Amino acid sequence: MVMHQIKVLQALASSITEGGRGVSGTAFPKQPEKALQLYEFEGSPFCRRVREVMSLLNLDYEVYPCPKGGQKYRKVVQEKGGKKQFPFFIDKNTGIEMYESQDIIHYLFKHYGRTGKTPTKFSTYPKIPVVAFVGTLINGARGVWINEKSIQREAPAQLLELWGFEASPFTRVVRGVLTELELPFIFHNVPKERWQDMGPALLRLKPGKYEPLKGGKREKVIEIMGRDIQVPYLVDPNTGVKMFESEKIVKYLKQQYA
Rank of each mutant, 00 (worst) to 15 (best):
P191C: 07
P126L: 13
S150T: 11
F170H: 13
V130N: 13
K217F: 01
W195F: 14
G199W: 09
V130W: 13
Q158L: 10
K217M: 07
T124M: 11
T171I: 04
R142C: 04
R227S: 13
T171H: 02
V174N: 00
V134H: 08
A141L: 13
E182Q: 14
V130A: 13
G226E: 02
T179A: 09
E180T: 04
I151A: 14
Y210E: 06
E219C: 03
N189H: 15
K192Q: 14
P212A: 06
E223W: 07
F133V: 11
A157W: 04
T179R: 06
V221C: 02
K220R: 09
I224Y: 01
V134T: 06
G208M: 00
P212Y: 08
K121I: 06
K121R: 14
F122K: 09
L160C: 07
Q196F: 06
E166L: 08
I128S: 08
I222F: 00
G199M: 07
K206M: 05
R227A: 07
T171C: 14
I128D: 11
G215I: 02
E154Q: 15
E161A: 12
W195H: 08
V134S: 09
E148N: 14
V190D: 01
K149D: 13
S123V: 10
A167M: 03
E148C: 10
N147H: 13
L213W: 01
G216D: 08
R204G: 00
L205A: 07
V190C: 13
R194S: 15
G216C: 01
A132D: 07
V221W: 05
L160H: 03
K149F: 10
V130P: 05
G140K: 08
F133E: 12
E180M: 01
L213A: 09
D197K: 04
L160D: 05
R227G: 03
N189A: 14
G208C: 09
G199S: 10
T179H: 02
V221D: 06
W163M: 01
V134D: 04
P212Q: 09
L213E: 05
K127D: 12
S168Q: 04
E148I: 09
I222W: 04
F165E: 07
D197Y: 02
H188C: 06
R153V: 08
S150F: 03
T136W: 01
P184Q: 02
P126S: 11
G135V: 09
K209S: 10
A157P: 02
K206R: 02
